[in-house]
């Protein structure tokens, strides 16, 4: 049994704009994950859809939902259906591509989101597994290709290598670390932690210390 659904509110909830929890609310969540990893104003957004997402994104409002997530709107925000207009106003160019063939991350509800500006490009491969819950199965950032096990929460920490042990000790007191993987280039060091349960905001804040950058998904 893979524990994807860890809270009663994953099942009863979210409160959201219809019509589909996996194709609308889940799409908001995938967009939101990409926004957090990019954490700067993006100028272009490209979404590649696979399988059920490719077949039904138009009818389900998946396009505006993904954009809403990238713009930081929560799934029940009445502005969600207007996200494409908001993107235009904010100078975000969007493109949606329906891909033939199976999802490269092995799920019928797959969206691969690419966000970029002049300095940086990131790619997030997410799938919406039902009821608004998502998995992130691949992240391409700063020349690293991360392959998390999928279920959230995932914590990404950039910074000096000698900070890893401190973060790990702190995290282990909060929850079980399901997977830990570090990535290195000459210029950057990044650690991925897949966690068992969600963290409180104050717990995330307490981990910030000593990290150059921290993203909590």
């Amino acid at each position: 049994m893979v524990l994807n659904y860890k809270s009663v509110f994953d099942i009863i909830g979210p409160v959201m704009i219809g019509p589909s929890s996996s194709h609308t609310a889940g799409a908001v969540a995938i967009g939101h994950a990409a926004r957090k990893i990019f954490h700067a104003p993006a100028t272009t957004l490209t979404v590649r859809y696979y399988e059920s997402f490719a077949e039904t994104h138009r009818g389900h409002g998946t396009d505006y939902a993904l954009v809403a997530g990238v713009l930081g709107l929560p799934p029940a925000d009445p502005q969600v259906p207007n996200a494409l207009t908001l993107a235009q106003q904010q100078g975000l160019a969007v493109k949606f591509i329906e891909m033939a063939g199976p999802s490269p991350i092995g799920h019928p509800n797959t969206a691969i989101v690419t966000l970029s500006n002049e300095q940086r490009t990131i790619e997030v491969a997410g799938c919406s597994i039902g009821g608004g819950t998502i998995e992130i199965r691949r992240i391409t950032v700063d020349g690293f290709e991360l392959k998390p096990s999928g279920p959230l929460p995932i914590l990404l920490v950039w910074g000096a290598k000698d900070n890893d042990q401190r973060i790990q000790t702190k995290l282990a007191k909060m929850t079980k670390i399901m997977r830990q993987q570090s990535y290195n280039t000459a210029a950057k060091h990044l650690v991925e932690f897949d966690l068992e349960r969600s963290l409180q905001q104050h717990e995330v804040d307490s981990l910030q210390q000593g990290a150059a950058e921290l993203v909590y998904l």
């Binding site: 099942i11 009863i12 409160v15 704009i17 219809g18 589909s20 029940a76 009821g131 608004g132």
Partner: peptide
């Protein structure tokens, strides 16, 4: 209401 893109609570899904 869900089909009209109104606000619902997914239980367990919106559909």
């Amino acid at each position: 209401v869900n089909a009209a893109m109104g606000i619902v609570c997914a239980t367990p899904t919106a559909g």
